[in-house]
Computed example of a mutant assay.
Amino acid sequence: MAAREIDPRAPEPPYRQIAADLGGEIERGELAPGRPVPSEKELVERYGVARNTVRSALAVLRASGHVYTVPSRGTYVADRPVADPREGDE
Rank of each mutant, 00 (worst) to 15 (best):
M1K: 07
A2P: 14
A3F: 02
A3K: 14
A3Y: 02
R4H: 09
R4N: 09
E5P: 03
E5H: 14
I6G: 01
D7L: 12
D7I: 05
P8I: 11
A10I: 07
A10Q: 06
P11M: 05
P11A: 14
P11S: 10
E12N: 07
E12S: 15
E12P: 00
P13E: 10
P14A: 13
Y15C: 11
Y15E: 15
Y15N: 13
R16L: 15
Q17Y: 02
Q17T: 06
I18R: 00
A19G: 03
A19M: 02
A20W: 00
A20L: 11
D21M: 07
G23A: 08
G23R: 01
G23C: 04
G24F: 02
G24L: 11
G24P: 00
G24C: 04
E25T: 04
I26H: 03
E27P: 03
R28P: 02
E30D: 10
L31F: 12
A32L: 12
A32T: 07
A32K: 14
A32G: 05
G34D: 07
G34M: 10
R35H: 12
R35E: 11
P36V: 06
V37H: 01
P38A: 12
S39G: 13
S39Y: 05
S39I: 04
E40R: 14
E40C: 05
E42H: 09
L43V: 07
L43T: 06
V44H: 03
V44N: 02
E45N: 07
R46G: 01
R46C: 05
R46Q: 09
V49E: 03
V49M: 05
V49P: 00
V49Q: 04
A50C: 04
A50I: 05
N52I: 07
T53V: 14
T53R: 00
T53P: 01
T53F: 01
V54I: 15
V54Y: 00
R55M: 10
R55C: 08
R55K: 15
A57R: 01
L58K: 06
L58I: 13
A59D: 11
L61E: 06
L61H: 07
R62G: 01
S64W: 08
S64L: 12
S64R: 15
H66P: 00
H66G: 01
V67L: 12
Y68G: 08
Y68E: 11
Y68C: 09
T69Q: 13
T69K: 15
V70K: 11
V70W: 05
P71K: 11
R73L: 15
R73V: 15
R73I: 09
G74D: 10
G74Y: 06
T75C: 02
T75W: 00
Y76Q: 09
Y76W: 09
Y76A: 14
Y76R: 13
V77F: 03
D79Q: 14
P81Y: 04
P81R: 04
V82D: 05
V82C: 02
A83L: 09
D84C: 10
D84T: 10
D84G: 08
P85L: 07
R86L: 15
E87K: 13
E87I: 11
G88D: 09
D89W: 10
D89E: 13
E90N: 11
